[in-house]
Design a protein around this nucleic acid. Structure first.
Lengths: 193, 193
DNA sequence: CGCGACGTTGATTTGCCTCAACGATTGTGG
DNA sequence: CCACAATCGTTGAGGCAAATCAACGTCGCG
């Protein structure tokens, strides 16, 4: 059951008691998402905090030339949302799109706030999740401002080997901030060595 | 009093009750930091979560050429720490250095965990703080991978006008990921218009 | 089958870096 | 209080990393 997977995931941080588990069950919605389906589009409000049970998503922004720039991937046991839009209720400038057929669990702001207020443990858990994601992003920013394209690519392969093998290089190029053509050239040069 | 400033800061998120205020008082340490003094150096463990009462800090990494790359600034009413090192107890790869003479309030991991366990409100507050910083970083990553140096500079000026006026351009260049020379050229071109 | 996503390669251009040199300013110790 | 060092900003010449543009082959999928 998808919900059990989520409970096991939470248990990595803090085990839940039965009351909390039941509250969760009642407030989450399970959905199947097809490949290329959007769970968030620009100018919409991000209505759900989404937990990926299986499959994979990308979140990206689109610039004035129409080019996509991947901000984040989310595969099994990861959360994805435009938190800014989710909490403020304002329109998002981002897209979240399924890269693979996926199963997700979703919670809306009202239900999440209910959980926070009635079971402070969730504040703790999501604090730690947010801190970990913050650390991850901080490392990425440092990479971006201090490394070459090649170094960023190698570092992506090391940090996310599983993800790298499921994604087309085009998507990785967009994530590390280079063109697909240049990534292809990097790969050729590295293969020769 | 510095501690009152922190309490007022917390009240933006959730007002504290007297018990919580007193607990805070007992667990924070006030320090004066001179310009150019470090509160974290590479290979040390980050022992404190630091709240800036007045003054300004930069956090940066140093690459194999010895060049500094600014990850974050922190001025009045902002928190700064290498959270990864702080929570894991492992050595940091970063530096935190005072750019101006500063006054700070610091808390160590044991005392912070005490607060989390005895007053869940702090879990909530620091969850929201972490989420906000996460959003900020996410925007920065998007900027980095989708904009030119000039756009990143303009965007820095808009987002942090006060900070921009107290920092030398060298520090801003390091933050947006370009050389000081090139930033100087950007400024000249923009001045002509 | 035919279209669209993906990867590849080459020619050319450009954004940004490197290095070097030079004033202006700040600050600091004698 | 002055002298000298360190920091900061500026400018120019030249080089390199990465983008752009265009063309082409492959593959999977509807």
């Amino acid at each position: 059951m998808p919900i059990d997977q989520l409970i096991a995931y939470f248990a990595q941080y803090i085990p839940l008691r039965d009351i909390e588990k039941n509250e969760l069950r009642n407030r989450l919605v399970e959905k199947r998402i097809k490949r290329r389906q959007f769970i968030l589009q620009e100018n919409d409000v991000c209505k759900y905090y989404t937990f990926v049970v299986s499959g994979c998503f990308k979140m990206y922004g689109v610039d004035y030339n129409g080019a996509e720039h991947n901000i984040q991937f989310a595969a099994e046991n990861e959360w994805i949302a435009d938190i800014s839009s989710f909490h403020s209720g304002k329109a998002s400038r981002l897209y979240i799109e399924a890269i693979e057929p996926s199963v997700v669990l979703q919670i809306d702001p009202a239900n999440l706030v209910y959980l926070y207020h009635n079971h402070p443990k969730f504040d703790r858990i999501f604090r730690v999740i947010a801190e970990n994601k913050f650390i991850e992003l901080q490392n990425r920013v440092l990479q971006n401002i201090s490394s070459t394209a090649d170094e960023r690519y190698q570092s992506f392969l090391e940090q996310y080997p599983k993800l790298a093998s499921r994604l087309p290089n085009t998507q990785i190029a967009s994530y590390i901030g280079i063109t697909p053509e240049f990534l292809s050239k990097i790969c050729r040069i590295n293969a020769k060595k």
